[in-house]
Every structure is written in C-alpha cells, then in structure tokens.
Simulated scan of single mutants.
Amino acid sequence: MNRVRYRLMALAVLPFLLAMAVDLTAFALLRDRLPDRLASHFTASGSSDDTQSHTSYLVLVLVMHIGLAALWAVVARTGDAAVRGLRWMVWVGYAVAGLVGYLMVAVLVANADAADPGRVRMPLWQLVIGAGCGALAAGIGRLLLLTVSMPAPLPSPGPGEPERLDLAEGEVAGWMRRAPSRVLLGTGLAMIATALVLLYAGGTRHALVALGGALICLAFSCPYVTVDRHGLTARPTVLPWPRIRVPLSDVDRAISREIKILAEYGGWGYRMRPGKTGLMLRSGEALVVRRAGGREFAVTVDDSATAAALLNTLADREGAKR
C-alpha cells in the first residue's frame, strides 16, 4: 500500500474519531447535570418517547463512530484513488461525522438539568443545524483532501472482442463462481457486533434493526453467478430469490473487462445507470453482457473471461435454433 493510500485512509477515518472525541468530551463536561435516564429518541413533534442509561449512550457513541470509521476505512482501502467517486465518498464521510457528532451533543444539551426525561424536547430545527455542521465538515474534508496528490486516472479499457469456447456439437457445459464482497461481509459482521452491544445495553429495538441489516448484508455478501443453458444467473448466498437472469435469447455478446465501481456505478450492490445495470461487489474483473435491446448488465466476478466465452458460445447455439 503506497503513501497516498495511507493518507486517504487516515483522512477518511479522521472525522469520525474527532466527532467521537467531541461527543465524549461533552458527556464528561455535562455528566453531573444529566438525569439518570437520558431522553434518547424523539418524535417528529420534538417530544421524547424513549430513554437510555448513561452506559448505553456511551456504548452507542463508541460503536457508531468506530463502526462508521471502519466502514469508511474499507472504502478508502478498496476504492480506486484515481477516480473522483472515492473523493466524493470521503467528503460524504465528513458530512456524516459532522451531522451525527452534532446530534449526539444536542441530545446531551437537551437533557442537561432536566428533572423529567419525558419532558425533554428536541425540535426539528436541530436537524437543520446538524445538516449545516455536516456541510461545514464536508468543506473541511474537501480542503484536507487537496493535500493528497491523487494519481491520474487510468485510460478506460477498450470493449474487447467477444471470445468463444470450443464445444463439440451436443456437448454440454456450465460455469459457476462465487462473487464475494469484503465490503458487505465486513459491514454485516460489524452490524452483528453492534446488535450484540445494543442488546447488552438494553436497546432491544435498535438491536433488532441492526441485526436485520446485518442479515441482509450477509445474505447478499457472496452471491453465486452461473452460466449454463438458461443463460446468466446471479442469486444471493443462501436464498433462491431474488435472482437476476439474462436468458440466452437476450444475449447479444459478453466480454470480460475491468470495472471501477465508484467511477462507473457509484457504489456497491445492485446499481442502475443510464443504459446499464450491474451487481457491483468490488472493483476489478467483471462479466459484462450486452443485451439484445442495447442495455448492459455487469457482475464483478473472477474468471469472467471463461464465463463470457461460454455465454457467447451458448448464445450462438440458441440463435442457431431459432
């Protein structure tokens, strides 16, 4: 890992660590003025409808900021430093840290000297101020990012010539690979840890939400990609549905090429862009299929050249039958 990558990771993590320090400092300064139970959740009208202990507040602050810092560290570690999308992601991290950090302090200030947590109010204009803090933090992040000498983007690879796989007449072949995503797997594991901590702290409702998010991430963290007589199919790790299928009759041609997901698709997961869709799990080697209507579908997976060659051969066979 070169110096640019280290500096990007440090800048990506920095705002969350600073926000955590501010929140913990505010708690230490206001601790003697806080009630035993803190008003922690507020309705749209600004009134409180839930409380938490001092311990659960501290655990939430630590887990939230450290978890976000870890997530942005993964983004900075795996993203392409030459693409503009990664810089935008770093700026977004500063905005998120500014917003979350302010709101956690605002909760403490609202609870200060409160005799009854049920009467604590948190008006919606606090969100406006929080958004302003996020925008200011994003501006600071943009200035800090100017200190990093970004590499020039590499030229986009050409479309390549579609390959064929030599199969004898009547010979049957299939191809299958897993397409693991370290980002989704890491996020899912981090959310499980968060759910356990929240459950221990007594936040059952929040723990269930975190656990649900973790299960969704893990279920889609390592999908199966297959090429056979049915065409191209991608399905989740352990579930038969939802699945994405491109039938052979809809395949115009398939190629293998490198994809930078932040630059071309803007992120991970199932992505939609004008003229194309994709199952984006990481940057790198991908199977790209041009469909009969002109749209493209891409999935990032290893050994995509073999998959593309087989898909072209099977599609040619299917076309010959018609």
Rank of each mutant, 00 (worst) to 15 (best):
A195R: 03
R164F: 12
V109A: 15
Y6R: 14
T300W: 09
L29F: 12
H41Q: 15
A254G: 10
S181Q: 05
V13A: 15
T43H: 13
E285C: 01
M9R: 04
A26I: 04
E171C: 07
R33V: 06
V105T: 13
F220W: 08
L215M: 15
G101V: 08
P15S: 03
S181A: 06
D316N: 07
D32Q: 14
A114S: 15
S56E: 13
L18G: 04
T233C: 12
C222L: 01
D49Q: 11
L279H: 04
H41Y: 09
K260I: 03
A308K: 06
R282F: 04
L146Y: 00
V299G: 08
W88V: 07
V225E: 05
L145Q: 13
E258Y: 12
A320M: 13
A201T: 07
G212Q: 08
H206S: 14
V61Q: 09
Q126E: 15
W175P: 09
R164Q: 13
V183T: 06
N2V: 00
A115E: 15
I192D: 02
V299T: 14
M9L: 11
L184G: 02
M20P: 00
A320H: 14
R31F: 00
G98L: 03
M20R: 11
M104N: 15
A81T: 01
P15V: 05
I216M: 13
P151W: 04
E318Q: 14
E296M: 10
V288R: 13
T147R: 14
Y102F: 15
T78W: 02
L29R: 13
N111I: 08
V183F: 08
R87K: 14
L18H: 06
A137H: 03
E161I: 11
V107G: 07
L154K: 14
T25M: 11
S249V: 02
P117F: 06
V75A: 00
T147K: 02
P162K: 06
P240Y: 09
S283K: 03
S149L: 09
L167C: 04
A305F: 02
R121Q: 15
L314C: 10
T313Y: 06
A70S: 07
D49S: 10
G98D: 08
P247D: 01
L287D: 08
L154N: 10
A76M: 06
L311G: 11
L11W: 00
W72R: 02
R295Y: 01
A298H: 05
D80M: 01
G46C: 08
R182W: 02
G46I: 06
C217V: 01
K260W: 00
R295Q: 15
G158S: 11
A219G: 14
L71G: 00
D49W: 09
A298M: 10
A179N: 09
G79H: 02
A138T: 03
L281N: 07
D252K: 11
A292W: 05
S156W: 05
A21H: 06
D252S: 13
A73S: 12
E285K: 07
D316V: 12
G79E: 03
G46Q: 04
V227I: 12
M122S: 12
A106H: 05
T204C: 05
A193E: 00
